[in-house]
Simulated scan of single mutants.
Amino acid sequence: MMNSKVVPKYAIVTLVLLAFACSFASAYDPSPLQDFCVAIDNPASAVFVNGKFCKDPKLVTADDFFRSVNIPGNTTNKVGSNVTAVTVEQLPGLNTLGISLARIDFAPRGLNPPHTHPRATEFLIVIEGTLHVGFVTSNADGNRLFTKVLNKGDVFVFPIGLIHFQLNVGNTKAVAFAGLSSQNPGVITIANAVFGSNPPINQDVLTKAFQVDKNLVNYLQQQF
């Protein structure tokens, strides 16, 4: 007769596996429990999932999963670049799938300014041209800068939440595509956020933070 105080080896193994399973489950987003959840703004006869209502599956069509990014973006602006986003806002079929896309067009010497995606890692591939890209680590890691010059067919990864940029170092246009690990990655352009906030950040804050005089801060705020 087995002693009731002795735990069988297989029970210990089972408990360990369950502990690992629980730790993994809490470390990742849960998988969707349906094939898809096409986002819809009309709440009638819909279910609310991941911040969006789900379209009735019987009414879903192939167009809900389609969008063309074949047309180049307008790069005639101060920075010489244009980002064509394909998030859940532009492609409803992305809802609950945890991914999105962006096309980035660059004029010669154009820049996609330093920015962050608070909810996504970015995977960039160059389709045309030559780009100088980079990201900066957090304060805890000493704000280290990692940079690389990318040519057609090259890829680069920008970790989630870190400030990064892309600069066209060629004299011809450049095109890149970015995959992002969120249906709604968000974007914070650093200069716009700091100097173009609404209402403006107190100039005393900015003069002390950047160690410059108020005239320069005032000039920069006027640019945005």
Rank of each mutant, 00 (worst) to 15 (best):
T61H: 00
P30L: 03
S68Y: 10
V7S: 04
T147L: 04
Y28V: 14
N70P: 00
D213L: 04
T96Y: 10
L15A: 11
G161E: 06
T130L: 08
K208I: 05
R67A: 15
V194F: 00
G98S: 11
R103F: 06
N202C: 02
N168G: 03
C22G: 14
K148S: 11
Y28A: 13
A176S: 13
L216H: 00
V49M: 02
L17Q: 04
V169G: 02
L216N: 05
R67C: 15
N139S: 15
D204T: 13
V83C: 08
I190K: 07
L131H: 06
A140F: 10
L15Y: 07
Q203D: 14
V86L: 12
F165I: 08
P199M: 06
V217C: 03
K78W: 11
R119D: 10
N139V: 11
N112L: 12
T14M: 12
H117M: 09
F123Y: 14
R103D: 03
N218A: 14
A44N: 15
T172D: 13
T137A: 05
A174W: 06
G142M: 06
T75D: 00
G80P: 04
F158S: 07
H132E: 08
R119W: 03
T137H: 09
V169W: 06
F66A: 14
S23W: 10
H164T: 06
T207M: 10
F195G: 00
N3G: 07
V6K: 14
N82V: 11
N202D: 13
T172I: 11
R144C: 00
K148E: 03
F106S: 02
L162N: 04
N95K: 08
F65A: 11
G196Q: 09
T130W: 11
I188M: 08
S138E: 14
V47H: 13
G110H: 07
A191T: 12
I125H: 03
I190S: 09
V38N: 01
